[in-house]
């Protein structure tokens, strides 16, 4: 059945399509601008003002060579990889342990643990007490200071708990009768049956670690331990004391753009393939535990 469209509807659809193209343009243009600027001829770029429709010739790729050879960026990348891999693994382990406990019916202390966890969603010690804790634990200038304080995200725990609860109790019960330990049940039954949820949580935790810079900026002094985002922040802030060698480079401006491209590219490149997991994560997070 084909319904004839009213003129108002057609006008709306035309407007809507144009508006959507406008949205696409304003999301994509800034990224395009940065990419194009990153290999433009530096002097013409420096004199340029306003929108940049194409790169200035002759193209100058030197900034990228400098970026890939910059010691702070290389060590930053390695540190970030360590934190993303190690941190996410620990996040998943601890979140699973908590979620597994909360998903089981019966234990008397379950309510107590639940309240203990939920309170932390609404109240925390704040910046200085947390900082003092890390200091007193002797974690200053270590990667643990970045990984440990955020081991468990409550929303993630609730998401995983909900997913565990969807697994029939009979599976746990028969495994217990067969002599399996709770640890085995968690690793052999619960986690394999919740792969999709785990995938979502891995993405969220990993992206969080990849983007994080603030806790590193307050807990780390040693430049060699800086994660990528903090290294980038230090390099981009030209008033920073670390930036001396960098500003002196003739590619300084190009390098700014190049760094933006290089550090964003990995996530931007893989995100479209993982889009459905991210979407799923948003929806899971909105489901009440």
């Amino acid at each position: 059945m084909k319904i004839k469209k009213s003129p108002a509807r057609i006008a709306f659809e035309v407007f809507n399509t144009l508006f959507m193209l406008f949205i696409v343009l304003i999301t994509v243009y800034p990224m395009y601008h940065v990419v194009v600027a990153s290999f433009s001829e530096p002097y013409q770029l420096a004199a340029h003002s306003g929108f940049l429709l194409k790169a200035y010739a002759p193209y100058e790729w030197g900034a990228y060579r400098d970026i890939f050879n910059h010691p702070l960026l290389i060590s930053g990348f390695m540190n970030t990889v360590i934190i993303v891999v190690g941190g996410t693994a620990l996040n998943i382990l601890f979140t699973s342990l908590g979620a597994f406990f909360m998903s089981q019916k019966g234990p008397m202390l379950k309510g107590v643990v639940a309240v203990m966890i939920i309170i932390t969603m609404y109240f925390g010690g704040g910046l200085v007490p947390s900082y003092m804790l890390v200091k007193n634990l002797g974690l200053m200038d270590t990667r643990w200071a970045i990984i440990l304080p955020g081991l468990i995200g409550v929303t993630n725990l609730i998401i995983l708990k909900t997913s565990f609860q969807a697994i029939p109790d009979s599976l746990t019960e028969s495994a217990l009768l067969d002599g399996a330990s709770y640890l085995q049940i968690m690793f052999r039954i619960m986690l394999p049956l919740s792969k999709a949820t785990i995938a979502v949580l891995v993405l969220y935790y990993a992206l969080g670690h990849w983007n994080a810079w603030f806790s590193a900026s307050i807990y780390l002094r040693d430049r060699g331990k800086f994660p990528l985002q903090l290294a980038v922040k230090q390099l981009l802030e030209s008033d920073s004391k670390f930036a001396g060698d960098f500003v002196a480079s003739k590619h300084a401006q190009l390098m700014k753009y190049g760094i933006i491209v290089v550090t964003s590219a990995p996530v931007i490149a893989i995100y479209p393939f993982l889009q459905k997991y991210f979407t799923k994560g948003v929806l899971m997070g909105s489901v009440k535990g």
Partner: peptide, 28 residues
């Protein structure tokens, strides 16, 4: 549920150290 409690101990310890101690820290 002993085995289950054993599993949740690390989680409880984490919450005590990284959330409840700083909460006590607001005394400052």
């Amino acid at each position: 549920y002993g085995g289950l409690y054993l599993l949740v101990i690390p989680v409880v310890v984490y919450y005590i150290i990284f959330h409840y101690i700083p909460m006590g820290g607001v005394l400052m």
